[in-house]
Amino acid sequence: MTTMNLTLRIWRQAGPDAEGRLTTYQVSGISPDMSFLEMLDTLNEELILADEEPVAFDHDCREGICGACGMVINGAAHGPERTTTCQLHMRHFSDGDTIDIEPWRAAAFPVVKDLVVDRSAFDRIIGSGGYITAPTGSAPEAHATAVPKPDADTAFEHAECIGCGACVAACPNGSAMLFTSAKVVHLNVLPQGAPERESRVLDMVGTMDAEGFGGCTNTGECATACPKGIPLTSITAMNREYLRAVRKR
């Protein structure tokens, strides 16, 4: 099996306030079947053996469902394929390639170390309205609340968001509109979300703005980068919800 030799230019930053810079590394013997993170694991093994600091990056499930991993690869969030970084395979690269690897860049996502950023701003957006205020307990009877099929489909489509932050990383304005709209639409379209329909969108947008994310200029970069295919019209739907909530006050 042919293997690849690659040149990596990786953003190294020792801590939140440290100066960072792109550092060049060579890796060899990379299998096309490796995931992008396994390729970085290979590099880190070599760095550890050489008594150097390994490259810090976030990862957890490595199945494309948790949203922990994420890095900007050659200027594209999660790299050239529409998937998460863990599900990106090295077969999409060629022997001799130079690959630039940078962290998500946004004022609201400060770098913690190397490729790890602090995405807790997302948690605060969710905390300000991305839920329904109802006793949960055991699972309710499935037929207790009727949900029209198209609404259920819309809710599921938007519930797919894994909060990886690729939308913010891809947006030229570092905007979190697609992330926020995914949750607003997911809950606002359902009868369970109806009692807090107005306060949810007003509060979540208020938090989103306060966290220092930029505004939407409808470039569509977010939806192109989203590994879960949250559609750009999700933002349009949130705009509609926001203006509706303002009118209802």
Binding site: G75, E102, A108, N173, G212, G214, T219, G220
Partner: peptide
């Protein structure tokens, strides 16, 4: 005002730049 916010939201630019969005945008 929105442009000021947008520019402040991306204080560090990507080193690897690529052509993004349409010319009109």
């Amino acid at each position: 005002q929105l442009s000021r916010l947008d520019l402040a939201a991306r204080p560090v630019k990507y080193a690897h730049t690529r052509r993004r969005t349409s010319y009109a945008t």
